[in-house]
Amino acid sequence: MQIAVLALQGAFIEHEHMLSALGVDSFEIRQLRDIQRPFDGLIIPGGESTVQGKLLRELGLFEPIRQAISAGLPVFGTCAGLLLLAKEIANDSRVHLATMDIRAVRNAYGHQLGSFDTQAAFAGIGEIPMTFIRAPYIGSVWADTQVLAEVDGKIVAARQGNQLATAFHPELTRDLRVHEYFVHMVEQHAKA
């Protein structure tokens, strides 16, 4: 199994460390030629969604990645990654890959002073640590999107088929279970 990590900007190395701790091989996507390699899943890391969205377009990665996700490629977006997947963003006129039926709220907790960490239940996993850094949350979901976690009544994790999105950063904790969950999604997809 090979999982690609979008490495245009942000905390991509942290995801690679999580995958390596699970014994899963990964490589970085920084430009078009990197996606010529075969891969079974994709992680879109935290960082700035404006930067990643712009570089996706300008480096010619936008269409191939969007099509791959639409065709069923398992994808996991954290924080900025969630924003890139969202079909709607409440407070931003610009959307990006727009493959997932969620409405995100950007910088929903305000400036850095609003960043926090907590513990909450994640469907199918149990209580996990959650770190929110200038994070978004999900205002609403529709179609077959399932809510996986909520904090203070706000949706912070969701899944729609091959797409998994969290407003928090499991890669900043030592808890491997959300990554394990995604690796399992990738395995299921590879079998199907």
Binding site: Q9, G10, I13, E48, C79, Q112, R134
Partner: peptide
């Protein structure tokens, strides 16, 4: 949390 924000700025 503050160190974490710097992690998000990396590569930028």
């Amino acid at each position: 949390l503050n160190k974490n924000l710097a992690q998000m700025l990396k590569g930028g």
